[in-house]
Design a binder for these strands. Sequence first.
DNA 1: GGTCGATATATCAATTCGATATGTGTCGTC
DNA 2: GACGACACATATCGAATTGATATATCGACC
Lengths: 210, 210
Amino acid sequence: MIDIAILGLLEDHDLHGYELRKRLGDLPGWRPTVSFGSLYPALARLERTGLVKAVTHVTSATPAAPMSGSLAGELAAFRAHRRSTTKESRGSRGKKVYGITEEGEARLHELLRAPEVVDDREFAIRLAFCHHLDRAERLALFRARRDQLLARREQQRRGSRPDSRLNTYLRSLLERDTETIAGDLAWLDRLIDAEQAAIDASDPDLGGQR
Amino acid sequence: MIDIAILGLLEDHDLHGYELRKRLGDLPGWRPTVSFGSLYPALARLERTGLVKAVTHVTSATPAAPMSGSLAGELAAFRAHRRSTTKESRGSRGKKVYGITEEGEARLHELLRAPEVVDDREFAIRLAFCHHLDRAERLALFRARRDQLLARREQQRRGSRPDSRLNTYLRSLLERDTETIAGDLAWLDRLIDAEQAAIDASDPDLGGQR
DNA sequence: GGTCGATATATCAATTCGATATGTGTCGTC
DNA sequence: GACGACACATATCGAATTGATATATCGACC
């Protein structure tokens, strides 16, 4: 989940964790922003699997970072190292700037393209970065989401047949939910139409096939 | 989170895990339903802390459940026991029916009343069971949610000042988000008005104070 | 007799969150 | 120029949640 967002943001600029967190907060899907407990382990995982790499920009004092070696060790070793080499490491706790690798770019594309649309948050994140897809792939994503919302609406209709048993507040909530789904569908249909129009315009001979 | 929903459902009827899961699926907040990995550990936790208790209804074959003792033991012991007493336990794997305790009812009320509204899912769950609150408490819940949505709208406005930098899809998503928040606020205001009207009607001498 | 799908409980690894610890850089202010 | 408050920055921990998987019984249908 968070992988898409991290890779998507790094595709544009190299960024360090803290900055990444702020930008993630501007995206829908995290309220109000990602926790550090998600972000840093995720970055470590992505680095371990070679999808991102550190461009260890240690600020000011020590331009060519000397402490990247201690990263492999565990906390105690790290601290001990830092304490024993206080003079060298004076001047900030190495701000780690990350960049995306070629494998990372491939993985991002693969994650965006994957056919199964799972939850609302994931769709939002994928949509936020879907400009990396081509038009046909984008259309497939939109339509998969549309099917999902349709199914949700259907399920709701089945569930609320004898809805007089429900309390007022739950009924009201369910009604609002229906309203939101209807709104989402209308919005999605506008996106789909726009995308289809763009395809027709760039490829007029296929216009009759939709 | 899941505690509110479990306690809220058990407040109406005694239920076993599987049935609980199905009813949870009818509530908004879980898509399409809770996972077993959430439900059963949560039930175990609630039982351990005395908020719910098992009324071990072992179906058909052995009406007065003889294997409640093995529950305390671990998996292997349980299986060994079951295998060695196959004849007795023939006819279903002891369906555990849970009921709410007095402590559970107190806890439910406390959870519903708590002033901090955290995320959307939690508000939905609380709303679904807020008929257990009195009108003033309910109104406080609604207003807290309202403040939260207002803050969200404000944050969005600040964030999207120079929004021409965003790609089309993200911009569209953000617009739809704004629309949804506006709709939620309008809906909430209707709920608040209705609640206030009910308070005024039942307590006319306080009508001027709002 | 066999197997499919619903009922039912339980556990596991991985992910995420909220809280917390720790340290640096930069104001303002006294 | 010393002090504290606050933004910047990385990291870890425990607990909750998810999705997958294992196990077992039941009724129905062929």
